[in-house]
Design a protein around this nucleic acid. Structure first.
Lengths: 129, 129
DNA sequence: ATGAGTTTGACAATCATTCTCATTTAGGTT
DNA sequence: AACCTAAATGAGAATGATTGTCAAACTCAT
């Protein structure tokens, strides 16, 4: 299990740059369209690969919408969760130390070895009300 | 918006019966295979439709695995969350009043009108360790 | 500048899920 | 019991996100 070294390419920079300007969770398809509309030439498969790679390193966050599509967003690097607007996908990061602790406790009680958890809160943001 | 009345069909009963015997989250495809292997003649599309219908009424729970596939399971009807084994998909229901409260608080602080939330804890169960 | 290993892109291939529509059925009505 | 009509089913086509393929282009240490 050797650590992968990601090479710095024009395409990867473009994806990272776009992500830095978006505050909502976006699908690979959306990111790709944005890139194209900006005049960046990047293949769709490359966008998929880049987003997945970034997600694996923890550089960006992933979640699934109701249709099972993967949505990505650049976030702070420390552990946190999300408050997501179901209308516009706008996202607010939230942290919840107490919930983390609860999670650990529950798992231990049931004999599980925790590998991760998902906590997303969905609703309508102030703007979309 | 008139309430739909679901007719009682052989196929729907078969799906419900199978679900009652499964304690892990299963995909529509898996449920379909199980039905077939039991000699039940049910179309794949019907399994999909039935599972979705059941999920909509809240009769069964849905969640998405890492690949974005929808997984279903018959659960208790009151509000709860899940501890899911990532190896075998075995599931333990958990309830978390304190987390519900926290959820409400956070949303209110951020001006969101909550529509729902997802809390799933993933790990390896005692058997799969 | 060079070479090995990565990455990319165009497009084909997957695969879960949904759609279509002709045929069958459930459940209420005579 | 035969009838009616909306709902449900099934077989297969269609969709659409995601992944695989592989030759060509690129990165980066030397």
């Amino acid at each position: 299990m050797v650590a992968e070294q990601l090479k710095s390419t024009r395409q990867r920079k473009a994806v990272s740059n776009i992500l830095a300007t978006i505050t909502k969770f976006s699908s690979a398809q959306e990111v790709h369209k944005l890139l194209i509309s900006r005049g960046e030439k990047v293949g769709l498969a490359t966008v998929y690969r880049t987003l997945q790679a970034l997600a694996e390193t923890g550089a960006i966050d992933v979640l699934r919408n109701d249709d099972g599509e993967a949505l990505y967003r650049a976030c702070s690097t420390d552990h946190h969760h999300h408050l997501v607007c179901t209308k516009c996908n706008k996202t607010t990061e939230i942290s919840a130390p107490e919930v983390e602790i609860w999670t650990e406790k529950i798992a231990r009680e049931q004999g599980y070895l925790i590998s991760g958890h998902t906590i997303e809160v969905f609703g309508t943001c102030a703007n979309c009300r």
